Simulated scan of single mutants.
Amino acid sequence: VIVRGQTTAARQVAVKAETSAVVVSAPLRKGATVNAGDVLCELDPGTRGAQQAEAQARRNEAQSRVPEAQARVAEAQARLDETLIKLNAAQKLGEGGFSSQTTLATAEAAVAAARAALSSAEAGLNAAHSGIEAAEAAVASTQAEIDRLTLTAPFEGLLESDTAELGSLLQTGSLCAQVIQLDPIKLVGFVPETEVDRVSLGAQAQARLAAGDREIAGTVTFISRASDPTTRTFQVEIEVPNPDLSIRDGQTAEIAIASAGVEAHLLPQSALTLNDDGTLGVRLIDA
């Protein structure tokens, strides 16, 4: 199956800022090789360090409130237990006629007040825990903001553009650098719908580049399940090793994809002929 296509980088990404700050790192020049995790742009932290310290102080303060809240809960529970004992005694005395209804009502009111105090203390403890969670969220938020100050390469590749210049202001979404990966490289072509069934995943393919008439080889790694609505062709991708990075992104290529063969006889072109009706025939020797 013969198709025309072009080479495409295996990966290509625009590394952009997620926050606003001034670049404080020297630029890397386009064409440089970078590894995953290499720093591309370093941004000025400004007051972010102070904001993180403040968030950590608030977290420590929130944590210090928990023991006090726990002590209040324990105290309220003890008072509730005490009032329950007194209520039980008042009820037994009342049953024997040794206590007045006023004393019993007072004991019941004390129990209700103790229960309310316990509920209040438990709410205070829950509020203390919520304060810790909110403070920890603030610490995580400030740390994430600090992490955004360092823009790194997501994978090994080449810089297709200079990184942002020292002293330039990057806003959220501003470009730091363009990184591409050329090893392996992909060949992308479009197969007509009449021949797409002849192409299979893993099939061997060869291509001739327009530049230098160079031949390369690879295997089919992707066949589109949906056709282009305009051309009714299906996209096919072929992965080709490119360790020396000599194949560039966007080169035109003529691709030949191997498909299932059929039995046939090899005939020279000189043995074929047409009769007066235009029917194809073969010249034979009558021995």
Rank of each mutant, 00 (worst) to 15 (best):
R4V: 12
T8P: 02
R11M: 08
A17N: 11
A26R: 07
A26G: 10
L28W: 07
V34H: 09
G37V: 07
V39E: 10
E42S: 11
A50D: 10
E54C: 00
E54S: 02
Q56C: 03
Q56N: 09
N60I: 06
Q63S: 06
Q70V: 09
R72K: 14
V73N: 13
A76C: 08
A76D: 04
Q77K: 14
E82C: 01
L84R: 12
L87C: 09
G94L: 12
S100T: 15
T106S: 15
S119P: 05
A121E: 01
A127F: 03
S130F: 04
A135R: 00
A137V: 02
D147M: 03
L151D: 00
T152L: 12
P154L: 01
P154D: 08
L159N: 13
D162R: 03
D162K: 06
T163R: 00
Q171H: 05
T172D: 07
L175G: 12
L182T: 14
D183Q: 13
P184A: 10
P184N: 13
I185L: 00
L187D: 15
F190T: 10
P192V: 05
E193Y: 00
V196C: 04
D197L: 12
D197P: 03
L201P: 08
L201R: 13
Q206S: 10
R208E: 15
A211P: 02
A211G: 10
D213G: 12
E215Y: 00
G218I: 04
R225V: 09
S227Y: 02
D228R: 10
D228V: 01
P229C: 01
P229W: 01
T233P: 04
I238R: 09
P241E: 09
D244F: 01
S246W: 06
D249F: 07
Q251N: 09
T252A: 14
T252G: 08
A256D: 12
I257P: 01
A258P: 00
A258Q: 08
S259I: 05
E263I: 11
L272A: 08
D276L: 14
G278W: 05
